[in-house]
Amino acid sequence: MSDPWDQNAALPPFGLLAEFKTVDELVDAANKVKTEGYKQTDAYSPYPVEGLTDALGHSLWLLPLVVLGGGLAGGLGGYMLQWFTSVYSYPLIVADRPFHSWPAFFPVTFECTILGASLSAVFGMFALNRLPMPYHPVFNVESFDKASRDRFFLCIRSIDPKYDAVETRKFLESLGPCEVQEVPE
């Protein structure tokens, strides 16, 4: 039994990282990884590749709902602010308009809707992506610098139930990568 408090004991690796030269090879490999039954996977590319998350079998649906919620909250908040201040907190007769002069409240309501939706789009995206995260194990792989340049990577994590240090490496090597490397944790 290994001692869980042993600082010098080697951690299990984060996973295996395969490097590809072209996007076609990456998408091809992603499809095969999914068919093989791996779930804890991710791919890395220098630009967004259409359909890559589908190829890996990840379904992501939460963000649009977050943005919808943010927009509704912004719009309702903006309108309620105007209603509260004009009707309840400090009713003021201006040019004989009703206190609740709703047509005049539209521009600010609109702007608050846009603001709420935009803030939730940006911060929602970063939060769901768990960013900022300055450290990530994949950065330990030296050639990973090229993931932001011209190389494509595919990672199978060690927490995947199908993961096996030898078998998974063999499988990844069969997909035609230029290199397969272990990602230290």
């Binding site: 991710d42 220098p46 995206m125």
Partner: peptide, 21 residues
């Protein structure tokens, strides 16, 4: 860069957020 690593999952949300923006 906040630790951006070009993950496919990140890119997918990124594109959604960018399009919505």
């Amino acid at each position: 860069a906040m630790g951006w690593r070009g993950s496919a999952i990140h890119w997918q949300r990124y594109e959604v957020a960018y399009g919505l923006l």
